[in-house]
Every structure is written in C-alpha cells, then in structure tokens.
C-alpha cells in the first residue's frame, strides 16, 4: 500500500506518502496565496525524497475541507485527476479530522481553522479519532459557550484567544497526519468520504439589481 495524501484546505500546502505502516516522506509549506503554484512541485519533491514514482501510488487521500474555496479546489482537482490518470481510488477526509488526529488529544476538544470574514470552521471531538459535532462555520463569539473550557487546536483557535482560551498546536494541517488517519481507517475497513468539497457556505452570488433607470425622471 502506498497512499499519497494532499491537503490545500488551509494556508498549508501539505503532501505526504504513507506506506501503510508509517509516513515515508512529507512536505508542508505555509503560504495562503500560492496553493496552485506550490502543490505539484511538492508532490514531485515528496516522491523524489522517497525514491518513488507516482505510478507506485495505490490510493490518493485528499482533505475535503472545510476551507477557503479557491485553495481547497486545488487539492481536490489534483487528487481527482491523479486518481483518473493512475486508475486508483481517491478518498476524502475532513481536513479538521487531520488536525484532530495530529493533536493526539484524549477527551473532549475542538478544532478550529480560519474561515476568514471573522469566522472559523470548527468541529468538536471526543478523542483524536472521534468527531462528535460539525464541521460548521461560525463567528467565534457565537460558539463561545459551546467551546468554553475545552482545549482547542488549529490556527482558527489561536486567532481568537478570547473565545478559545486553551488554544494550542498543531497550528497547521499536515498531510502526514491525514495519511496516517486514512491508513488506519482503511485498515479497519472504515469507509472514507467521497472526494467532494465541504464548502459549508453558499456561493456568493448577488443577483444583479433590477434594471436601473438611466433617464432622469
């Protein structure tokens, strides 16, 4: 088994290879504006570091968000295209689940990433493998009561310390964690998600105002 995992749903452009036992190679770059430029070279670098070629990959894992859409789609379309070209399955995982898994936390906690527009994407967990609520997108103040007193993981938590008082790392998504979680789930025969984006918001689409009168009345 050789899984190629990619995630571009957060500012991190992150790629990892996992052979079923452990992570073989990984690359994580944090740059919110250059997902399109950075992802493919990262894949190439990770494969080169492992001394492997893309045709050795037996499955692709992709973070399906939630995350800002433009970046999120880079990972999803790359994963889908690899899957088609290689003839291998493409599995989706909630991006927040990767952060939860990487935290290694026991008991209840939350994961929050930056959704911009003064909102966070967030989900609640009971242990690093068990999501109990979400994902959702909300203003931090609106969920203050629900997250009060809970450890909180991710850049979204670190951004709003007044709401997430016990904010901690990991700050950024890692495809290594995502790959390890996927390998564990696949080994246990668990079903993963389809590789479809979790946008959580409707597209911004202003219906143009009715025809504006141009003649002075």
């Amino acid at each position: 088994m050789l899984l190629l995992a990619v995630d571009t749903a957060t500012p991190a452009v992150t790629v990892a290879l996992h052979d079923g036992d452990s992570v073989v190679a990984e690359s994580t770059q944090v740059d919110a504006r250059r997902h399109g430029e950075l992802l493919l070279p990262s894949v190439d670098r990770v494969l080169a570091a492992a001394g492997l070629k893309l045709d050795a990959v037996t499955g692709v894992v992709v973070g399906v968000g939630p995350g800002p859409y433009t970046g999120l789609r880079v990972g999803l379309v790359t994963a889908a295209t690899f899957g088609s070209a290689l003839g291998v399955p493409v599995h989706g995982l909630c991006t927040l689940d990767g952060l939860a898994y990487a935290s290694g936390l026991e008991g209840p906690f939350v994961v929050a990433t930056d959704a911009r527009r003064k909102e966070v994407y967030w989900a609640s967990y009971d242990g690093s493998r068990t999501r109990t609520g979400g994902p959702a997108v909300d203003r931090p103040a609106e969920i203050a009561e629900q997250v009060a007193g809970l450890p909180a993981v991710g850049a979204g938590a670190l951004l709003y310390p007044e709401v997430f008082a016990d904010a901690r790392g990991p700050e950024h998504q890692s495809a290594a964690a995502l790959a390890a979680l996927a390998a564990e789930k696949l080994a246990a025969g668990e079903e993963l998600l389809p590789p479809r984006p979790l946008y959580l918001r409707r597209p911004d689409a202003q219906v143009p105002k009715n025809y504006k009168v141009v003649t002075p009345q």
Binding site: G36, V43, V77, T81, S84, A85
Partner: peptide
C-alpha cells in the same frame, strides 16, 4: 491549470 498539471505529471 491544477488538473492539467496533475494530468501531465501523472502521464
């Protein structure tokens, strides 16, 4: 562009 890169790379 992302799809084209992935396709060209894979092939």
């Amino acid at each position: 562009v992302s799809a084209a890169k992935a396709y060209a790379y894979a092939l």
